[in-house]
């Protein structure tokens, strides 16, 4: 049977599924190597947990209190619902307005491109594979 390895810390922390836990417990009964590894992991955990918890200096919060709140520009999440309600209102007010098609909105390719590159960059992706999309800075067609 293979050793429990990385499951041992999760076992210690109560982070295994029941099935995994049963496997680990069964294996530990006979495997001295894993027993030692579990003991080591337990000791390391105990040492980190034994570190004193310090109080945060009080000047930290006074600095926060005096910092300005800059509200980020935020659009309403359900712009569609609002737009639909507005459209319905306009239609009731007059027939002429419903014939008119709202003008198209203009978006640059770079703006579109960033909506893909940025979320992808959260993974800190390597070049190639998933990063093909983010490893494009040129936006070459936006002449």
């Amino acid at each position: 049977m293979s050793h429990s390895g990385e499951l041992l810390s999760a076992y210690l922390d109560g982070e295994l599924t029941k099935a995994e836990e049963l496997n680990v417990v069964g294996h530990l009964e006979t495997c001295t190597r894993c027993q030692t590894e579990l003991g080591d992991s337990h000791e390391a955990r105990a040492m980190v947990r034994a570190l004193p918890i310090l109080d945060m200096p009080t000047w930290v919060t006074s600095g926060v209190a005096s910092s300005p709140v800059e509200l980020p520009v935020r659009r309403r999440p359900l712009a569609w619902a609002a737009a639909a309600a507005a459209a319905a209102f306009v239609l009731v007010v007059g027939f002429a307005t419903f014939v008119a098609t709202p003008p198209a909105i203009e978006i640059t390719f770079t703006e579109i491109s960033n909506t893909l590159r940025l979320p992808a960059s959260q993974d800190g992706l390597p070049p190639g594979a998933r990063a093909v999309v983010i490893a494009r800075s040129s936006d070459g067609i936006a002449e």
């Binding site: 810390s9 982070e15 590894e37 955990r45």
Partner: peptide, 19 residues
């Protein structure tokens, strides 16, 4: 922002190196 399995591994290996 990584899978739980990665965290399991990091914690266990981190503790191993600490010990």
């Amino acid at each position: 922002g990584v899978p739980v399995g990665t965290i399991r591994s990091r914690i266990h290996r981190g503790r191993g190196q600490l010990r």
